[in-house]
Structures are given as structure tokens and as C-alpha cells.
Lab assay of single mutants.
Amino acid sequence: TEEYEYTDEQQAREAAREWREKGYTVTIEEHNGRWRVKTG
């Protein structure tokens, strides 16, 4: 599992979409105004 943090929701969603296209399972969670994208 890798985790990436973004301050911008749009960036987080874009990144998540790219990971999904590569076949990863992706979770996005908002935490204190930051967006965490977890792949695994």
C-alpha cells in the first residue's frame, strides 16, 4: 500500500483515476482538509 497526500481534491481525484486505470485498488479519504489517496 502506498499513500499520497494532496491539498487539492481535484488533484487527488485525478491521481486516483490514473491509478485505477493501471489496475490498482484506490481509496480516497479526506482528512483535516487534505486528501489521501491510498493504492493497494
Rank of each mutant, 00 (worst) to 15 (best):
Y4G: 06
G33D: 04
Y6K: 01
N32Y: 04
E5T: 09
R36L: 15
I28E: 02
T39E: 04
W19C: 06
Y6P: 01
R13M: 13
Y6H: 03
V26Y: 02
E2F: 15
E18A: 12
W19K: 05
E29G: 05
E9T: 02
Y4S: 06
V26A: 08
V37T: 02
E9V: 08
R17K: 13
T7R: 08
W35M: 01
R17G: 07
E3K: 07
W35L: 02
E21R: 05
R34P: 00
V26I: 05
N32K: 08
E29R: 07
D8E: 08
E5S: 08
E9H: 06
G40C: 15
R34W: 05
K22Q: 10
E21P: 00
H31K: 11
A12N: 00
E14S: 10
Y24V: 07
A12H: 00
T39N: 05
V37K: 00
W19E: 03
R13S: 07
R17N: 12
E5G: 05
A16M: 09
Q10F: 12
R20K: 10
R13E: 11
K22C: 08
T39L: 15
R34H: 09
E18M: 12
Q10P: 06
V26F: 02
D8V: 05
K22D: 04
A12S: 02
E18N: 10
R13H: 10
T7W: 11
V26E: 01
W19N: 03
T1C: 11
Q10W: 13
E5H: 09
K22T: 03
A16L: 07
A12Y: 01
T27F: 08
E5F: 15
G40M: 15
V26H: 01
T25N: 12
E18W: 08
Y6I: 02
W35A: 01
N32C: 06
A16Q: 04
T27Q: 09
T1H: 14
A15T: 06
N32A: 05
I28S: 01
W35P: 00
T25S: 11
E21Y: 03
T27D: 07
T39G: 06
H31L: 13
G23I: 01
T25K: 10
G40D: 14
T25P: 08
R20H: 11
V37W: 01
I28Q: 01
R36M: 13
